[in-house]
């Protein structure tokens, strides 16, 4: 009887560990897969236009419905400058952490312009950032926008709607002028 209780307790402990792993750890791996896509060596801190298959994997939308791009970032020892050029349509730019949390998002109506620069920096104090709202983290600067994020790794997703499939070529041409540029911090330089 005691032995059965012991094994039952062990099973429950394993169950609890599995439960927490499923909810807390496995989604991070799933997010990693979403971020890098099919290729194991996805470029980091570089702007990448998504082809039809990659867009379907990341956003679940076909090439006739939207145009998208991504920039997988790692700003552990520096900052990222996103120079976005968007067409005159409905678009959004969203930053996710590598755990799937939304860090920052903006669309065409909120931005008011289709060409801007967004600087992504690591937040100086994690607890301050976690206790504040997103709007408080984003501050308009004279040359564009600056956002401080609590997570050093993540992905920036550029998205724009297509009214009809023939717009794809034009929108892709405009979006491809965007860039992600990483600048190492002074402390990280040799």
């Amino acid at each position: 009887m005691r032995a059965w209780l012991f094994w039952l307790a062990v099973a429950l402990v394993i169950g609890a560990v599995t439960h927490l792993s499923y909810v807390l750890i496995a989604p991070s791996f799933a997010m990693q897969r979403l971020m890098v896509g099919e290729s194991e060596d996805a470029p980091v801190n570089r702007f990448v236009l998504l082809d039809a298959a990659a867009q379907m994997r990341l956003l679940g939308e076909t090439e006739n419905e939207a145009v998208s791009a991504k920039c997988v970032f790692d700003i552990g020892d520096g900052e990222l400058s996103i120079a976005a050029e968007m067409p005159d349509t409905f678009w959004s730019l969203t930053l996710y952490s590598n755990k799937g949390a939304d860090l920052y998002t903006i669309n065409d109506r909120q931005a008011g312009i289709d060409r801007f620069k967004l600087t992504v920096k690591r937040a100086p104090d994690l607890s301050d950032i976690l206790s504040s709202e997103q709007s408080e983290n984003a501050r308009a600067l004279s040359d564009g926008w600056s956002v401080e994020v609590p997570e050093p790794r993540g992905i920036a997703v550029f998205w724009m709607a297509l009214d009809y499939p023939e717009q794809r070529k034009l929108f892709t041409d405009i979006l491809s002028r965007s860039a992600c540029t990483f600048t190492a911090s002074q402390n990280a330089l040799p």
């Binding site: 429950l12 402990v13 394993i14 169950g15 560990v17 499923y22």
Partner: peptide, 11 residues
């Protein structure tokens, strides 16, 4: 058994 309990309860 523990693994099954964990996955089913999480889902």
């Amino acid at each position: 058994l523990g693994g099954i309990i964990g996955i089913v309860s999480a889902q």
